[in-house]
Amino acid sequence: MAEDVLVVHRGLALMLCEDAAILEETLLAIEPLQLHIRRLGDRALLVPADRVDSILENLEREGTFPRVVGAMPAPSNEEEEKADEAPVAEEAL
């Protein structure tokens, strides 16, 4: 743990604001969602990508229609493997 490691954190969406005021407005709009947010400086937020739909819904309710680029990340291999394994587990039971 003491070693300096490069941490690659997938499954996150980056919300990049034009300025700090937009970021504050954005935070206010999505506050009711009680999200897991990591704030980076005064322009950027990292949020779990699977919450983007509810974020957009809240923002649109406030009249903000952000630009969305990129595609939703595919489920991780582990999840896919779990999904594949599920029926086998049921059979075993």
Binding site: D4, L6, L14, V68, V69, A71
Partner: peptide
Amino acid sequence: AHRRLTIHLGGASLRHPDPERFDLI
């Protein structure tokens, strides 16, 4: 106005505790 907030999906966040090393990466 629409582009004042951009949401990037499907990316990855990178962190490293050593700024100099991170700059090289």
